[in-house]
């Protein structure tokens, strides 16, 4: 029961003129925020692309917000010829550190093997009962560039292109996404009219 608004319908006073046509109210984000409200002394990991609006949103709701922009790290590694499998050295956190992890569209920028490695890593880093958020942009024009998911008021999300990032897109069907994240249990998922999909996974 979320709203999706096209560019034409978007409010004229939209705060970011660079935002793309994707602009909608996120069900998964609302569920994630509700979940954070129920926990105490929460620690959440945001894997980027980092943006200040999202940092502001999350840091008001958690005790400690960990940010590690994996998009930027993978992009830099790729330009230096470092194999993708070495990217995970950056996520050197102790097991069961986090109540929540925000992957955004990171998995869609990874080959199958690395995506599964990421899912395993999330399973290791998340506390029992912890939640993992995954987004998959829908429209081709939106998918062509990496986007930051910018959180506004009322759990509205819009996408801000990150032209400095050059990471190839790996399109996945829903069943592939669910299979890839297999160590984690799928709790909820939604598809929007523009094809954007959002998933909430949980560590049992």
């Amino acid at each position: 029961m979320a709203t999706f608004t096209t560019l034409a319908e978007r409010p004229k006073e939209h705060p970011d003129p660079d935002a793309t046509q994707v602009y909608y109210t996120s069900n998964v984000l609302r569920l994630f925020a509700e979940y954070l409200e129920r926990r105490q002394d929460t620690q959440v990991l945001d894997l980027g692309p980092i943006c200040e609006e999202t940092i502001a949103f999350l840091s008001r709701r958690v005790k400690r917000l960990y940010v590690c922009d994996m998009f930027l790290r993978m992009d830099r590694d790729r330009r230096r010829g470092i194999p993708p499998g070495r990217a995970w050295r950056h996520l050197d956190y102790p097991p069961q550190s986090f109540d929540g992890i925000l992957l955004w569209e990171l998995a869609d920028r990874l080959e199958e093997r690395e995506a599964r490695k990421l899912a395993e890593l999330c399973y290791t880093l998340i506390k029992p009962g912890g939640k993992v958020v995954v987004f998959v942009p829908g429209e081709q024009a939106v998918q062509d560039v990496v986007n930051a998911f910018v959180i506004g008021d009322g759990f509205r999300l819009y996408l801000r292109p990150q032209p400095h990032l050059d990471l190839p897109l790996r399109k996945r069907q829903n069943r592939n996404v669910l299979g890839m994240m297999a160590p984690l249990k799928s709790v909820k998922s939604f598809i929007y009219r523009n094809g954007l999909r959002e998933f909430l996974f949980q560590h049992d």
Binding site: M1, T25, R30, A33, E34, E37, P49, I50, C51, E52, I55, A56, S59, R60, R61, K63, R64, L65, Y66, V67, C68, D69, L72, R73, R76, H90, A148, D153, G154, F155, R160, Q162, H164
Partner: peptide
């Protein structure tokens, strides 16, 4: 934080007591 900053951080924002977090019900 500007887009493009190369950041790995742990962030703790001091919460001002009068500033309330938006209730989740608003979105519904």
């Amino acid at each position: 934080v500007e887009d493009g900053a190369y950041v790995k951080a742990v962030i703790e924002v001091e919460r001002e007591s009068q500033k309330k977090v938006e209730p989740v019900g608003k979105a519904i």
